[in-house]
């Protein structure tokens, strides 16, 4: 089931990139509200029942064929220090002392309904399978480690020591075992039924029933019901979750919704920025053209004015010269007359 689903998704991506807009008959719920895969599985971890035996850690180590730790699983001194996930430890049991009594918390990948790791992976290496598991495909991973930045539960780890083929490592909800109809290793090994595997909807009902039946035993909160849009792992606790190191300030927004706003701006920039910029370019060009035209016009006017002035000066000069010539002629005439008269007189 899960493999065919992944093939389908891969095909969908390929079809999308081949340009078949609208050809894909995929349709979301009409209200665009997504409630996760129906009938997906999950695990309810009743923290009040955990005795810190670390059988789950050992089972996880065995079924995933991980290297054996230096200290045996029966060594309780391991619990004295707070531990984090490593590339060889997918699940960790941590002890914290509340009001004098120890409380044990098993942690692993919570298998979000809307995984942050899947949302941020730029090769789409993470998939939320319909059975509930969030699985990772190492064959496409580039190793950017954005999934680790994004995960609010600080789950994915990296094989920093491997120089050539490092991979991201995290709990798989034993997806390969689920396909064979087996329980996750940790659940199978739990001697106190602190871990219950089942359909998430059923687990929520069980958890609510327990809270109702034993209100003095449980905090009235199912961790994972709404956190980060909900997770496939659910937790019940007798003390406030934040007191045992579980963050209650993560919010209920599913991870993809955190980036959807920024993603939706991208096509707007692509669509409208060139329009604006080409407009600016056109206006600048037009301004230059007008400026150039005005310059040419101004020059033409100036030239014309100069020419007119020159012509006027020339005309005036010509006029003056003409008058002067006439005057001279008149004077000559008069002189001639005078000379003639004086000749007559003499």
């Amino acid at each position: 089931m899960s493999i065919s689903r992944r093939k389908f998704l891969g095909w969908m991506g390929a079809a999308g990139l081949a340009g078949s807009l609208g050809a894909e008959p995929a349709h979301g719920a009409s209200t665009r509200e997504f409630t996760g895969h129906p009938d997906s599985y999950g695990v309810l971890h009743d923290i009040t029942r955990c005795v810190g035996c670390r059988s789950c850690e050992e089972a996880c180590n065995t079924v995933n064929e991980l290297p054996k730790p230096t200290k045996p699983y029966t060594d309780e001194s391991v619990l004295d220090k707070k531990r984090k996930f490593t590339a060889t430890e997918y699940t960790i049991v941590n002890k914290s002392v509340q009001n004098g009594s120890p409380i044990f918390l098993k942690t692993q990948c919570n298998h979000c309904l809307e995984p942050a790791c899947a949302s941020v992976c730029f090769v789409n290496a993470f998939q939320k399978l319909p059975n509930g598991a969030v699985v990772y495909d190492a064959s496409v991973c580039v190793g950017c480690r954005y999934c680790m930045v994004a995960c609010p539960f600080e789950v994915p780890t990296y094989e920093y020591e491997d120089p050539y083929t490092p991979e991201v490592v995290k709990c798989t909800l034993c997806a390969p075992r689920l396909e064979k109809g087996l329980l996750p290793g940790c659940v199978e090994s739990c001697p106190t039924e602190s871990l219950i595997f089942g359909k998430r909807d059923d687990l929520l009902k069980i958890a609510r029933a327990r809270i109702e039946k034993y209100p003095e035993r449980y905090v009235d909160h199912i961790y994972g019901e709404h956190e980060m849009g909900g997770t496939s792992w659910l937790y019940l606790s007798g003390v406030p979750f934040k007191d045992i190191g579980m963050r209650e300030d993560l919010g209920n927004t599913p991870a993809p919704a955190l980036t959807s706003g920024a993603l939706h701006v991208i096509p707007m920039v692509v669509a409208l920025w060139p329009v604006f910029l080409a407009g600016m370019y056109g206006m600048a060009k037009r301004r230059d053209k007008v400026a150039a035209e005005e310059k040419t016009k101004a020059i033409a006017i100036a030239v014309e004015q100069t020419e007119n002035k020159a012509a006027e000066t020339l005309a005036r000069a010509m006029d003056k010269a003409k008058k002067e010539k006439e005057n001279i002629l008149k004077r000559v005439e008069r002189a001639k007359e005078k000379a003639a008269k004086s000749k007559e007189d003499s």
């Binding site: 389908f8 998704l9 969908m12 991506g13 999308g16 990139l17 340009g19 807009l21 894909e24 008959p25 995929a26 349709h27 979301g28 719920a29 665009r32 997504f34 409630t35 996760g36 895969h37 129906p38 309904l113 809307e114 995984p115 899947a118 949302s119 789409n124 939320k128 319909p130 849009g229 599913p254 991870a255 993809p256 919704a257 959807s260 993603l263 991208i266 096509p267 692509v270 669509a271």
Partner: peptide, 24 residues
């Protein structure tokens, strides 16, 4: 073919948006 998660829905719409942007 029903899409059940926001993530899968966005993967679908964003892929189409990217093609659209290239064509545009």
């Amino acid at each position: 073919n029903t899409i059940h998660t926001l993530q899968d829905f966005m993967l679908h719409t964003e892929s189409n948006t990217y093609i659209l942007m290239g064509v545009y």
